[in-house]
Computed example of a mutant assay.
Amino acid sequence: MAYWLSSIITVLVIYIAISIALYYLQDYMLFKPEKLPIDFQFDYENQETKEYNLETRDGATINGLRFFPKGESKGVVLYLKGNSKSIKGWGKFAVDFTRHGYNVLMVDYRGFGKSTGRRSQKAIKRDLQLVYNKLKEQTTEDRIILYGRSLGSGFAAKLASMNHPKMLVLDAPYYSLTKVTARYAPFMPLSLLLKYPLPTYKWLKYVQCPIHIIHGTHDKLIPFKTSIKLSKVNPKLTKLHTVIGGGHKNLNNFESYHTMLDDILNKIPKTIDLQTTSINVIHSSKPNKKKA
């Protein structure tokens, strides 16, 4: 056998082997779950909580935690977390919403915390729609805010595209997981291999509520330019909020993030009479000619 042919076959075998490994190991690379014993007790200082367990049609259990504000509630924030740990640790971020008078519901995806069941993109989407439906039994959709953080941003966008929440807030979102992973494996056929493509950009097209995107300029995992691109998908409904210097995991350490969140949650949008603005004024590119 010619040397060049042998080399091609060797490279092809290695390529196929890596592709197979990526397909079967991607769950372990993408998800970093923290499992909790069934009798684990959630406890947060100065936070009133209630634990829920929701049974799915395929026999899985989705565990969730609800945080209550002090005083009358303005609505509920369904907080869809990132790809690591469990709501045990993510619960500390609920205060950013309860302090504004909102209930917060956090749920663990399948295999996280106390939640059970075989994980897949389809199953998670179905689980979250079930959670959303339960919320609709308790309140009206105009009081439901969807907040998706990192991995959760794609699922939040999908939920918003299928329902009519008050608003959608995306925190450090990705264009699609296919695009994110392509940065690390540019020569692999990821569109065929990925079990979780999560095409956020496709779902955003069908969202009919206000969309707020929050992103840090120094995010190394999901670049800031991703949110610029996403903001153009449904521009009439989208507002991009920039955290100067913010990374992927530290936006909550910036005062500007909390100022933006306050603005998003509490300010009533005003209708602008564009006829009273300079919207139709065109800047002249040529100097005015002097009359003789």
Rank of each mutant, 00 (worst) to 15 (best):
L78D: 02
P199V: 12
I20G: 10
F93R: 15
K81G: 01
W203P: 05
G246M: 09
L22P: 06
L194N: 15
I9L: 15
M106R: 00
L78R: 04
Y206V: 06
V207N: 04
N250I: 08
K225Y: 13
W203G: 09
Q26D: 11
L151W: 02
T259Q: 13
N46S: 15
V131Q: 10
F254T: 00
D43Q: 14
K267I: 01
K114I: 00
K114N: 01
L25E: 12
R126E: 06
K195R: 12
Q121G: 12
P287N: 06
Y184D: 09
Y196Q: 05
K81D: 00
E255N: 06
H248E: 01
Q129E: 06
K205T: 12
K158Q: 15
I8Q: 12
K166S: 14
D27W: 12
L194P: 02
E137Q: 12
A160N: 11
K225Q: 15
S84G: 15
E34K: 14
E48K: 15
D171Q: 13
Q208R: 09
Y257E: 04
I272P: 05
V104D: 01
N63H: 11
A60W: 14
I38Y: 05
I213H: 02
F68Y: 15
L251R: 07
L25T: 10
G154C: 11
D27R: 13
L265A: 07
F187H: 09
A160Y: 10
I38R: 11
Y174V: 03
L65V: 01
F112C: 08
S6K: 15
A157D: 05
D39I: 03
N53I: 01
A94I: 02
T271A: 13
L36W: 01
T139D: 00
L54E: 10
N252Q: 13
E72M: 11
F68R: 14
S84Y: 15
L265G: 05
T238G: 09
S176G: 09
L240E: 04
T271F: 07
Y44Q: 05
S284K: 10
E72H: 09
S6F: 14
N266H: 04
